[in-house]
Amino acid sequence: MAPSGLRKANDPPLLILVSLADGPKHGHALAKDIEDFAGVKLGPGALYGAITRLVERGLIEPLGSDDRRRPYQITPPGSAALAGALADMRRVTRAGLARLGLDPA
């Protein structure tokens, strides 16, 4: 596995980074947001497994909170990893659409 853990579009780490790209969120807000934009329901176990890996790799970091619901934010390395993964996906998507004749560009 690549160290960033970003392999395919429905990977929990990638979905979490995309969700955090527009601002910090706590666990429940992340799960709701991911369900809204990707249609993927992440359970608490899967969500916190992915959060743990992303924190270990320094791609996201926790923010201080008095509440039990601790928010997380994306870090500069996290933004770089996300940008790299999305650029690769865009390249593959463009090639696939062009070969299917579905991409006007």
């Binding site: 690549a2 960033s4 790799r57 790299g84 390249r91």
Partner: peptide, 17 residues
């Protein structure tokens, strides 16, 4: 973040961090 150059991000499937 907004000035990321996508070509500089390409790592041919590997995102090494």
């Amino acid at each position: 973040r907004m000035t990321v150059n996508p070509s500089a991000q390409r790592t041919h499937g590997r995102h090494r961090f």
